[in-house]
């Protein structure tokens, strides 16, 4: 057999598959987008709880109280020092069952929140430390307590500093939620996987999944640019 028909033949098959793959993606787009909605839900909740955890984690990391410092340091070290994948497995299979009857969705939110909180804590700490030392001194010299100085003087300035790294963190969380597929939370990646095992259209299906992720992260980063620009003119 000469190679020419083979190449010719494979091209035909390729183009046939391409049409088929596109059809698969189009037909199953609602199915994938449902997964994307779940991805967004997990991300939004995790970022929300992560910000609360991160605010306190960051403040405690700067606290003079040794107990608060130790708690936040241990928390941050653990969640930044181990892979999220392992954290998901450990909490979902190892720890959460002892505490509550968590659905994959709830477990995903808990793990992603804890993980996001650890990174946010470091962002908050760095942001607070980036505010000039003289600001705290001026506030304290007027007679403000540490807490008053933090809430009226330091944090309002720190929040502008932390916006860009926070947006980065949110984008990272959104992408990292793909790992919760392992505990069968049916978010975008798991939906892609299920679709793939039904149709075996790797390039089309994973390409579509990647595109949907990209649209979401790009939207987030454009939003971040907008917020940054608005703050710069303020």
């Amino acid at each position: 057999m000469s190679p020419v028909p083979l190449i010719f033949g494979s091209n035909i098959i390729d183009s046939f598959l391409a049409i088929n793959g596109l059809q698969v993606v189009i037909k199953n787009l609602p199915y994938l987008l449902e997964g994307a909605v779940l991805t967004l839900q997990i991300t939004t909740l995790s970022v929300l709880f992560g910000m609360i955890l991160g605010l306190f984690g960051g403040l405690f990391k700067l606290a003079k109280n040794p107990i608060l410092y130790a708690i936040s340091t241990a928390y941050i070290d653990f969640f930044r020092g181990t892979p999220l994948y392992v954290q998901i497995l450990l909490l979902y299979f190892g720890i959460l069952p002892l505490l509550l009857d968590a659905t994959p969705f709830v477990a995903a939110v808990i793990v992603c929140s804890l993980n996001c909180g650890a990174y946010t804590a470091e962002i908050v700490r760095a942001g607070i430390q980036a505010v000039e030392k003289g600001q705290m001194e001026a506030a304290r010299s007027l007679g403000m307590t540490n807490r008053q100085a933090m809430s009226y003087v330091i944090l309002p300035q720190a929040y502008k500093i932390v916006i860009p790294p926070l947006i980065n963190e949110f984008i990272a969380v959104l992408k990292d939620t793909s790992l919760v597929a392992v505990i069968s939370a049916e978010e975008l990646t798991l939906r892609g996987k299920l679709l793939y095992s039904a149709y075996f259209e790797a390039a089309w299906i994973w390409g579509a999944v990647a595109l949907v992720y990209f649209i979401m992260t790009k939207t987030l980063s454009l939003l971040g640019d907008y917020v940054e620009r608005r703050m710069a003119t303020e």
């Binding site: 000039e132 003289g134 600001q135 001194e137 001026a138 010299s141 007027l142 007679g143 403000m144 502008k160």
Partner: peptide
């Protein structure tokens, strides 16, 4: 000390006004 500081005004070399 916070009570005391309310009675002691301080002016710094670098002003330290609140920029926000």
């Amino acid at each position: 000390i916070n009570k005391i500081r309310q009675q002691v005004g301080m002016v710094f070399q670098l002003f330290n006004l609140f920029p926000h």
